[in-house]
Amino acid sequence: MTHLQEIFRIAPANNDHQAAIRCAVGLGAPLLLLLFTGRIDLAIFATFGAFTGIYGRNEPHRQRLGHQGRAGALMLAVILAAALCARLDLDDWGTVVGTTAVAGLGTIATGFWRLRPVGSLFHIFAFAAISSVPNQPPLWQGMLTAVLTVGFSLLLGLSGMLVRKHRTEWARHERPRFSRVQRRLIYIDGLQYATAAVLAGSIATLLGIGHNYWAMVAATVPLVGATVRHRVHRGLQRILGTFGGLLLTALILFPGLEPWQMVLVIAACQFGAEMFIARQYALAQVVVTPLALVSTELAHPSDPLELLRDRGLETLIGAAVGMAVVVAVHLRQQHLREKHARRKQDQIGQLR
């Protein structure tokens, strides 16, 4: 019962609606503009550029600008790498290799840049999704779309400065240096993300399931958390929330929405995701799932049944791999601690 209560517990709100509105507008407005100008082929670049608004959600305005600036720069680097790799016509294994590199390097970058959310989940998603898109638009157009969307997100992040009661002090805060132990932990995190990603992606590829990178994204979810139990709970929440989200996605996709209606659904799901992502991860996944799948359908229409099947299978594989990595690392650390304790006891015994 304790585990169930923790999995389904909803944390108190913390002005989540403010960040949710910014993120919904930051994603919805660029997509509507591209739709009305007939350039929906650039939607994927705008979507991932808009992810900049997810970072630094509750920080003072000056810190938020710096935080989102670093996050936007990293996302643009990932988008550029993905667009260049797409021109190499990577096969499924090439996607696994490239995405694994992004998983490790992205985690290290977010660690040293102190980005929140931590890890490289969004970068994995961005790289694999963009690099898998056939018939890429001209590179300069895709990157210009991403840059403009990042800039729009930065402006939205500062929009609270226009309202007196929401305005924060424009003061600089010094960031402390990393200790040697902290730097080592960042590199270890990068290795864990890369390991989970390559294992999940390899399994999905060997099984011949489409969208193998969804498994790689899901595998990184359990790697975030203060304790082993919390990390395993996140993996279970990912599975439960995704399957709830698949039911919601079916209700959205099967009626056959018009593109402009899909954009409104995407913006609404982005709002819902930001409302609950910090409070109840499983509930957030119920809206994150249609957010991801409707975005995919908007850019590249496909068979909805196949899309839903792939998402469900990939999530099961990825979450299981991620939880297995968490448990394996925990058991390894426990073994090393016990071994160190026995050695210390032996040394004390010899001295006596």
Rank of each mutant, 00 (worst) to 15 (best):
F8H: 10
D16K: 11
Q18D: 12
A19T: 14
R22Q: 06
C23K: 02
G26H: 06
G28Q: 06
L31M: 12
L31S: 04
L32Q: 10
L34A: 02
L34I: 02
L35N: 12
F36E: 08
D41F: 02
D41M: 04
A43S: 14
A46W: 01
F51Y: 15
G53E: 11
N58P: 00
E59Q: 15
E59D: 15
H67V: 03
Q68H: 10
G69V: 10
R70A: 15
A71V: 04
G72L: 05
A73Q: 03
A83D: 12
C85R: 03
D91F: 04
D92S: 15
T95A: 11
G98H: 03
T99S: 14
A101P: 01
G104A: 14
L105W: 13
L105C: 13
G106L: 04
G106D: 03
T107Q: 14
A109H: 07
F112S: 04
V118N: 03
L121M: 12
H123T: 00
A129K: 02
I130C: 02
P134D: 07
N135R: 10
P137H: 06
Q141S: 15
T145L: 01
V150L: 07
G151S: 08
F152R: 05
S153H: 08
L155V: 13
L158P: 01
L158G: 05
S159Y: 07
S159T: 05
S159L: 11
E169T: 10
E169H: 07
E169S: 10
R172M: 10
R177D: 11
F178Q: 12
V181F: 05
R183F: 04
R184P: 01
I186Y: 05
Y187P: 00
I188W: 12
G190Q: 08
Q192N: 12
Y193L: 02
T195F: 15
V198F: 11
V198H: 00
A200L: 07
S202P: 09
T205L: 10
G208M: 09
G210H: 09
N212K: 02
N212I: 12
Y213A: 11
A215K: 04
T220H: 02
T220L: 09
P222G: 07
G225M: 12
R229V: 13
R229L: 14
R231D: 04
V232N: 14
H233I: 11
Q237W: 00
G244E: 10
L246Q: 08
L246N: 04
L248H: 00
A250Y: 14
L251R: 04
I252P: 10
I252N: 09
F254K: 08
L257M: 15
W260V: 13
Q261T: 10
V265H: 06
V265Q: 08
C269H: 05
F271G: 06
G272N: 11
E274Y: 02
M275W: 06
F276A: 12
F276L: 15
R279N: 01
Q280G: 02
A282G: 13
A282P: 01
Q285Y: 12
P290G: 09
A292P: 00
T296H: 02
L305M: 14
L305E: 14
E306Q: 14
L308Q: 13
G312V: 08
G312F: 06
G318N: 07
A319Q: 09
A320R: 04
V326S: 05
V327E: 12
Q333H: 11
H335Y: 11
E338G: 10
R342P: 00
I348Y: 13
L351G: 00
R352V: 11
